[in-house]
């Protein structure tokens, strides 16, 4: 039997920048010791030496092979340690794992991207892909929501995107606690004015489970086809290779078969939402 590469062995990556995005989200920019090629929507396992590893979908441009960024919300043991990282620290990376967004299937289509909170991170990488292949997609809509205006991830970048001619962008927050010129309310309240053919359009949703659940319901009510809804399912992905069982979702492993799923693939399985 040929020697099989140990799938649990990370490669080294140097932290080259740490950007404070909001009160509890930081973006870590890393230079891996070997080039890493990922498809938008795939994820990596990031090791903080001595602490452990956790899964993140890169938020940077997939076309850049010698650098990647992850935006991390401080919620648990590993993410707290990630927030302590400084320039020059050496971390570990495994991956990329899973399936990304099927960019080929999106070509020529009208696409609505719905994001919530930390869900902007994978979507930023996806938006970069759309922008890099300008003209290949019929129409792009971005609808983003956050709890508060103060903690709006990538806000200045999103405000820049609003000026683009190839993108129709609208943002909303549940609570205004800083200067805010956009809408107020949950993200499902800013979907009605999306001017596209729902029955043939694509919708991509990424955000906390509760937001995904209501957004999915809303989009189906609007007339989107189940097979045109792409959801990023959040699970506790640990091994990354479809073995450890934590991220099982029906017949699938979120790490191996996801984390992006078409709604029609998963809708009949129990426990898909919290």
């Amino acid at each position: 039997m040929n020697k099989i590469k140990n799938p649990y062995r990370p490669i080294k990556a140097e932290v080259i920048d740490v950007i404070t995005e909001t009160e509890n989200i930081k973006t870590i920019r890393m230079k891996p010791s070997e080039e890493i090629s990922f498809k938008t929507g795939q994820f990596i396992e990031l090791t903080v030496p001595g602490v452990g590893e956790a899964p993140f979908t890169p938020s940077s441009r997939p076309s850049i092979k010698d650098m990647l960024e992850v935006s991390v919300m401080k919620v648990g043991k590993v993410t707290r340690a990630i927030h302590e990282l400084k320039k020059g620290d050496i971390v570990g990376i495994r991956g990329p794992f899973g399936n990304g967004y099927p960019m080929e299937d999106f070509k020529g289509k009208e696409i609505l991207i719905v994001g919530g909170g930390c869900g902007f991170a994978p979507l930023r990488s996806l938006m970069y892909e759309f922008f890099e292949h300008e003209g290949e997609f019929k129409k792009l809509f971005f609808r983003g929501g956050c709890k508060t205006s103060k903690n709006f991830l990538y806000r200045s970048e999103l405000e820049q995107w609003a000026k683009r001619k190839d993108l129709n962008l609208e943002l909303t927050v549940d609570e205004v606690n800083s200067e805010w010129n956009w809408k107020v309310g949950v993200v499902t309240t800013i979907l009605d004015d999306v001017d596209m053919d729902y029955s043939s359009g694509i919708a991509v949703v990424c955000g906390p489970p509760i937001m995904m659940k209501f957004a999915t319901k809303k989009l189906l009510d609007m007339g989107f086809k189940e097979s045109n809804l792409y959801l990023s399912m959040e699970r506790n992905m640990s091994c990354g290779i479809g073995k450890c069982g934590h991220c099982r979702l029906g017949i699938y492993y979120t790490c191996k078969d996801g984390p992006v799923f078409r709604y029609d693939m998963i809708k009949d399985y129990p426990d898909i939402w919290d």
Partner: peptide, 17 residues
């Protein structure tokens, strides 16, 4: 044990089988 690590402060120094 799946892999072994060697550390230097917060730096991942080496990863071994």
């Amino acid at each position: 044990d799946l892999v072994k690590f060697e550390l230097q402060n917060v730096k991942l120094k080496d990863v071994k089988e």
